[in-house]
Amino acid sequence: MSDNRDENISLLDDASGRSDAAIVARCRRGEQAAWDELVDKYQRLIYTIPRRAGLNDEQAADVFQEVFVTLVEKLDAIEQPERIRSWIVTTAKFKTWGVIRGKKGHYSPATDEELENELNSIPDAAPLSDDVLIELEEQHLIRAAVNELDERCREIVSMIYLRETAASYAEVAMQIGVGETSISPLRTRCLKKLQKLIGR
């Protein structure tokens, strides 16, 4: 599969932090619906981090559970709720590294300083380098934006770009019920919408 990504471009200076802060505020008030929203939004990213590091399903499940348990415990103490995504990624990375190093049991650094020291002890060659985490975060943001597209655009973008094997224009045309020649301009329009959503 081709990879056209540009290392000089970052999608992470997005505005999604504002909506995250609002969700966290609702969680702090005890709203289960807000928590469910947070789980739905981040489950894929959290599960992907340990898997990308090479952990097996069981180990990835342990990391996943520990991240959410820690999030529940520290929900009120997170100082920058608009940066909850960074907190989640850092915590998942830390828990993953704990499994790789063979640390057993539920362990959370007591302070941010302790967490930073622990993270600094992870060698650069570790499977979850900063580049990998940036890639996973960006993919998370893109998926979130795809989910915000209208149904037809979501279908087109998902079929062409998010499947393991990209669908042909003929397949997409059949799926959404338009002529095959319409797919190219529709695809372009949908990508522009997607780009706009990401750049909000």
Binding site: M1, S2, D3, N4, R5, D6, I9, L11, Q43, R44, L45, I46, Y47, T48, R51, D57, A61, F64, E135, L136, E138, Q139, H140, I142, R143, V146, V157, Y161, L162, E164, A166, L191, K192, L194, Q195, I198, G199
Partner: peptide, 19 residues
């Protein structure tokens, strides 16, 4: 360039939903 970057990210996205 940004659009190409986005497409590249989507094409290399191998993430799956948690069970």
């Amino acid at each position: 360039r940004k659009l190409d970057h986005i497409i590249g990210r989507m094409q290399t996205d191998t993430s799956v939903d948690a069970p």
